[in-house]
Design a protein around this nucleic acid. Structure first.
Length: 710
RNA sequence: GGCGACGUAGCUCAGUCGGUUAGAGCGGCGGCUUCAUAAGCCGUAGGUCGCCGGUUCAAGUCCGGCCGUCGCUACCA
């Protein structure tokens, strides 16, 4: 078995708080696994850090009037603190915005890939609109479909024949906004040639098929089927610069540099420890190291295909990972939604509950095989019934008995071990074995269940022997039982340590042991030492505190109070003062959203503005468009009962029935466009919120339908 | 819409390679116990394993179709 392990947790994107869903998905399980591995004597490095590049951070920083560096400073600090509060202890928690070593490393890997032919640049003609004086991304170009000659094809796809192509393939391309003919200008982009890397990738993946989870393999296969070159450069002022003279003003796409953040964090740590400059290679480029990426299901393709492809293609002997990806955690029956207010931050929960209560609950409900659920009722059950009822009460009943009947010293075995004692010790050994097997398969949830079973067995021993009763007639027997129970508690402290570290340490002290349970080797949990005669420690504090019904009710109520209704009603104005800007924090590395910053557009004349036929229109009917997740088909009424059908991509944020009767702002003279088989006449105006959600512009008070807007 | 994962007791979830009467915890009901934090232990009720079809001596498990949930992706004039 490999004794050196490099463990990573997905780099959180530095634009929002960490919530329970993130924790359960990729951080807590990693922390537990690392603690377990260390207890087996393995050498482990646990690295993480914030992912700080990409357009969303740039945009959000701008909105708050901050430069991206100070913006990410804030979130980096907040996220780091949240992990500390829950005792998730990384060896290093870095950030991808540090030029040294992160930028240098990223550039070096890029150059290696380039040199070996796995990155190619394409000086593709990019469409430019000279009238608008800007480049035309796919979406802003229209033209004639090269395949079916449909005259209104979009830049990337033909709505009629469904052909996919590049904007420059369009026949007679023109600018979508002003309609003038588009010019071509060469522009260079760099691509990671994934199809070319496939031969390196597949032999390695083949070795993983037997052990990886089905959810992971499913994503891998899906991604491999559609493997195509991926662009790795962008025109942004924030990111790792592309180290080529011809790539001035270009940076790497955030997904390219982010996973290398794992490596740069390692380099940073080695430096901080004063090791030689190449020491990090022991962790990343030595056959004796096992690499494990803990991530959520949204990140699978990046960690199983793209990042390994980058490493393989660079020609250095990189370690390649195992990828235990979790599914998602829901909260009280709904998805976590930062923008919808349906979330709880770690910081806020730690004010009311001990970290260990949260760690245990999240572990027991971890979404290892499918989406799972966190509820406060569940927290209560797991704390009251499992932690307190099974473990806490066990410690209490046994140790207090030692205190009161044996003068505070653990008795030696007064008699030979009987069947119940043997059975209990066998259960402990089985627990160690079972938990080990689960952990080796990356199931912290399964392992916790096995530890719980040891607790059950210990309680059964007490019931079977009734030492509190037997002590009168057969003191030797009672002493034997209590002696064995103390050994079980010692084993349990070792087993519990990765899951509930601070509680395990307190139990350790209550047992009168020196040091900490994490000092003890994991396998030795099965055979605790002889505690005879050892004085127990202070018992003035219970291991766990009960969670009362009223607490559960209060939590659920306050969650509902701060939540916006899911998709039911249009948001009322003028209420929430929009406190913390909290766009969804995607566990990352993830690709940046494609939508770039709405850069300031060129000044236009009044005539140009007046060319827009803006009007107020009443929504008289609304229904989801079939086969489209985002689109709503709206029936609008203008003056004199004139009706228009318009499509709008707001389905995620507005329930159709809630829109009927509302007066929206409508652009009436936009060229009609057929989408998904339905012709949309014009568009309804909406603002884009920080998290990308749409907020409709509505008439502040009722006006006649069709009223002009100017 | 395409692709993927999932759908098991009132609730939360286990079920390895197809193999006897499908399991656990919580909740319900009945009992025991009082060392212990109203904690513990025993027993019991409760399931058409989403639906339909197929393969097989045998299907919760494999295959196909359908429905539902979630994710990725497309649509967001």
């Amino acid at each position: 078995m490999t004794a050196r392990h490099l463990v990573t947790s997905a780099l959180p994107y530095a634009n929002g708080p960490i919530h329970l869903g993130h924790l359960a998905g990729a951080y807590l399980n990693a922390d537990i696994w690392v603690r377990y591995k260390r207890a087996t004597g393995a050498e482990v490095l646990f690295v993480c850090g914030t992912d700080e590049h990409g357009a969303p951070i740039l945009v959000n920083a701008e909105r708050e009037g901050l430069d991206p560096a100070s913006y990410t400073d804030r979130w980096h600090a907040a996220i780091r603190r949240s992990f500390e509060l829950l005792d998730v202890r990384f060896d290093v928690f870095s950030r991808t915005s540090r030029p040294d070593p992160h930028h240098g490393l990223t550039q070096r890997v890029f150059l290696a890939l380039l040199e070996r032919g796995y990155v190619f640049s394409q000086e593709a003609d990019q469409l430019f609109c000279d009238a608008c004086k800007r480049g035309l991304p796919d979406r802003f170009a229209v033209g004639t479909c090269p395949r079916c000659e449909y005259p209104e094809a979009r830049g990337d796809e033909c709505p009629r024949c469904a052909a996919a192509f590049d904007a420059v393939d369009l026949v007679a391309p023109r600018c979508k906004s002003c309609g003038s003919a588009a010019a071509r200008r060469p522009s260079t982009h760099w691509y990671l040639d994934l199809p070319k890397l496939r031969p390196l990738l597949e032999p390695w993946l083949a070795t993983k098929r037997a052990t990886w989870r089905p959810n992971v393999l499913g994503e891998v296969d899906k991604f491999l089927r559609e493997l195509k070159p991926k662009p790795i450069t962008r025109d942004l002022p924030w990111g790792v610069p592309v180290p080529l003279p011809e790539a001035k003003d270009k940076v790497f796409y955030v997904w390219f540099d982010a996973p290398l953040g794992y490596v740069s964090a390692t380099i940073e740590l080695c430096r901080a420890r004063g090791l030689p400059e190449d020491a990090w290679r022991t962790w990343w480029q030595d056959a004796g190291t096992r690499l494990v990426h803990f991530i959520g299901k949204d990140n699978i393709a990046f960690h199983t295909v793209i990042f390994p492809a980058m490493l393989l293609g660079s020609g250095e002997p990189w370690a390649l990972p195992d990828v235990p990806a979790n599914e998602f955690l829901n909260l009280e029956g709904r998805k976590f939604s930062t923008s919808g207010g349906w979330f709880i931050t770690v910081d806020e929960l730690v004010e009311r509950y001990p970290p260990d209560a949260l760690r245990w609950t999240l572990t027991r409900s971890a979404p290892e095989t499918r989406d799972a659920e966190f509820t406060f009722k569940d927290l209560q059950t797991r704390v009251n019934s499992e932690l307190l009822g099974t473990f806490g009460n066990l410690a209490s009943r046994v140790l207090k008995f030692v205190r009161s009947r044996y003068d505070g010293r653990i008795p030696g075995p007064g008699a030979a071990l009987g069947e119940p004692e043997q059975a209990a010790l066998a259960a402990l050994r089985a627990g160690v074995e079972g938990a080990t097997a689960e952990l080796e398969a990356f199931s912290t949830r399964g392992a916790a269940a096995r530890v719980l079973e040891v607790g059950y067995a210990a309680n059964k021993l007490i019931e079977a022997r009734q030492p509190f009763k037997v002590i009168k007639d057969d003191p030797a027997q009672a002493a034997t039982t209590i002696h064995v129970a103390c050994r079980l508690l010692e084993g349990l402290a070792v087993l519990l340590a990765p899951f509930v570290p601070s509680t395990a340490a307190r139990l350790w002290a209550q047992l009168g042991l020196e040091g900490a349970p994490s000092d003890r080797r994991w396998a030795e949990a099965a055979a605790p030492g002889d505690p005879s005669g050892r004085p127990v420690g202070a018992l003035d504090q219970h291991l766990f505190q009960r969670i009362e019904d009223h607490q559960v009710e209060a939590e659920v109520a306050s969650l509902h109070a701060k939540a916006r209704p899911p998709v039911s009603e249009t948001t009322e104005t003028a209420s929430t003062p929009a406190p913390a800007p909290a766009p969804a924090a995607a566990p990352s590395p993830a690709p940046a959203a494609a939508g770039g910053a709405p850069q300031g557009k060129p000044t236009i004349t009044y005539e140009q503005f007046a060319a827009l036929d803006l009007r107020i229109a009443r929504v008289v009917a609304a229904k989801p468009l079939p086969k489209a997740d985002k689109l709503l088909e709206l029936e609008l009424e203008l003056a004199g009962g004139e009706r228009r059908t318009v499509l709008s991509g707001i389905r995620a944020w507005y329930a159709p029935e809630a829109l009927v009767g509302r007066q929206v702002v409508y652009l009436a003279n936009l060229a009609p466009r057929k989408i998904r088989g339905v012709e949309s006449a014009g568009m309804v105006l909406a603002a884009n919120d920080a998290d990308g959600s749409a907020v409709l512009l509505l008439a502040e008070r009722a006006v006649p339908d069709g009223a002009p807007v100017s």
